[in-house]
Amino acid sequence: METDLGLWSILIAIVGGAIRVSTPFLFVSLGELLTERSGRINLGLEGTLVFGAMSGYGVAYLTGSAWAGVAAASVAGAMFGVVHGVICSIPRVNDIAIGIALMLFGMGLAFFFGKRFIQPVAPYLPSIPFGWWSDIPQIRAALDVNVLFLIGLGLALVISWMLRTTRVGLILRVVGDSTDAARAMGLRPVPIRIAATAAGGALAGIGGAYLSLYYPGSWTEGISSGQGLMAVALVIFARWNPVACIWAALLFGGAGALGPALQSVGITSGYYLFYAAPYVLTLGLLIATSSPTRAMSGAPGELSITK
């Protein structure tokens, strides 16, 4: 039997929604973070995400393995990243514009090749029932956590550790902060940026695979509601800090769950405005934490959008 939890149910719904909805945001923002820490911005992750959702679903359906789908999505995403990285290495090419072009291109290719995968049903990614201790079905459902979410959490910690203490992290930070300093240290910024963008693309592809293979768990042309575009905002929001990306993604996911949850307890008018809550919240926090006089703390020095 379901239990009537009153207003508690909103809180449970927001927690559950945050966990369910945040995973793609987490992956795509970690990917964008890697790219931006190398000094480039990739606005095209929306296209990468959608293509990852399609290719992940398609491969999972054809092979019968959801994990094969995730692998395919990450490879496809890395390829988009390489294309972005290589093209942006050509002098005078605008990385923001290339990002928009690749967004279009990725979505176009995904829709082009995705027509035959709209109908079939692919296997789902597994989840772990962390709510086993509770008798309340709502809590059990909310704490049914997908493996990719946990991998994302681990990845954020690993990237944070990598950036702080490893040689790879140091190289990435130097390249992102100053091309000249990197050259003086004998580093070649171009291949490093291409590699960082490729890694970012791979993560965005996995984020897409989560959408199509777990939640909502279906390939349709409306699968993404701008998760890839929002990544750029979330990274600024998280001040280029991987651990903060977790909170940003959870906050955004939780805010997104607010609309349906409020309707389910009878707060029904103005749902469009509730649905806009994540965007209003992000904008408000951006305004509150920005400053016209000092550069944003944590911003890589070579990044075009903060220069």
Binding site: E2, T3, D4, S9, I12, A13, G16, G17, R20, V21, Q138, A141, A142, L211, Y215, P216, G217, S218, T220, G222, I223, S225, G256, A257, G259, P260, A261, Q263, S264, V265, T268, Y271, Y272, Y275
Partner: peptide, 28 residues
């Protein structure tokens, strides 16, 4: 009967969230 409006004719994530909210509210 509990109803949740998604606001759009086709919006996968919102539809999934609405469905979850309905089940959470006890709809079977």
């Amino acid at each position: 009967c509990q109803v949740i409006f998604t606001g759009e004719w086709s919006l996968a994530v919102k539809e999934a969230e609405a469905t979850n909210a309905l089940v959470d509210a006890g709809c079977d």
